[in-house]
Design a protein around this nucleic acid. Sequence first.
DNA 1: ACAATTATGGACCTACCGTTCCAGAAAGAT
DNA 2: ATCTTTCTGGAACGGTAGGTCCATAATTGT
Lengths: 200, 200
Amino acid sequence: MSRPVEFDRDQAVQKAVHLFWQRGYQATSLADLLDAMGLSRSSFYGAFGDKRGLFVECLDVFAVRNQAILQRARDRKPPMAALRSYFERNFGRTSVPDLHFGCMLVNTVIEMAAIDQGLCDLAGQHLKTVQDLFEACLGDAGAEPDEAKRAAAFLMMVNEGAWVADRQRISIPDQLARINTAFGYVEGSIANRNTAKAQL
Amino acid sequence: MSRPVEFDRDQAVQKAVHLFWQRGYQATSLADLLDAMGLSRSSFYGAFGDKRGLFVECLDVFAVRNQAILQRARDRKPPMAALRSYFERNFGRTSVPDLHFGCMLVNTVIEMAAIDQGLCDLAGQHLKTVQDLFEACLGDAGAEPDEAKRAAAFLMMVNEGAWVADRQRISIPDQLARINTAFGYVEGSIANRNTAKAQL
DNA sequence: ACAATTATGGACCTACCGTTCCAGAAAGAT
DNA sequence: ATCTTTCTGGAACGGTAGGTCCATAATTGT
């Protein structure tokens, strides 16, 4: 039936993710998007509804991609190693040098909190999903349920703080040192509890 | 000499701080500012140059006010108690209920990183000043210089992460629990090193 | 009281925002 | 080949952004 769509939708969304991730919602104009995605206004509105709709889609794409990093590590490594590799991959990447865009979810929470609570909440939900993954890893690593919850909340705080520093273009060694400090604390805490439990 | 200024400059800046703090730079329009500050366009441009100039001034005001909280605590309490009270005051305030604006410095780093590097750097510098205060407190508390540096960097990461959660309207008990976890780690670490040093 | 100086209110400017709309081009179905 | 459907490019829309300008009002020094 009739003329088919000419552009690759997924590829266009990827371009949009990159732009929104880097510049945020407000500072990314429709003209910027159309230029990067390589499509006309009509095609844009036909395919995505409006700017906000595209942003929601980008948020979801980003979140899935982000969760997959941890999920894959979890399938292949011991739980604590998987957690560490998630942080090391995010904060220790040496491949592309100046990619200090932070985390699109954190950026959105901060930028949109007082502007569009729906977007803020959506980004927050995605972050909560990651925190739940943290909790699952910690449980697998032998932490008691309440200890896993406590440590997962702590690690999410660390994660969010590290992303703020990322936008300040903190050096990779400094960043990794801070992450390492935090993990040392958490692992020490879990080890102590396990030891205490063994002594009962 | 001629007609004097009619409005209270400091008071006007306070109003502007409140607006920028809540909504960020981009989402705060000149009309919003003029309305809140209660002055006309001419007076505004006469007194502050332009929107960006006012924002810089607000950033400074916010930073000074913020640093003063820690500085005052430091004058009155033991160093670790001063540090704790800084966090507890920021994240445990029960006075005004729904004031979840985060930290204007953190908000600015995130919002402006890719838009206006000057503003991002300025906010980052102010944060660094707070981190230096952390370091000084930890030094006073008996931490070795490198340990104080390490722990201060860690606490700044915690601070930034907690402010992100604040914008998500995290509950005060959850927030304080996370802060408490972090402080437990840091104090344990310093105590251990002090013990180890005593055993030499 | 008058002159000199400066703040003030508000009209005005240009640029850009996100969105809508429409005429025309392109492709599948018959 | 024709018809129908859908996509596409670009013009046009109203609204708002930050910033400028000027006539007027107000105050101090003389």
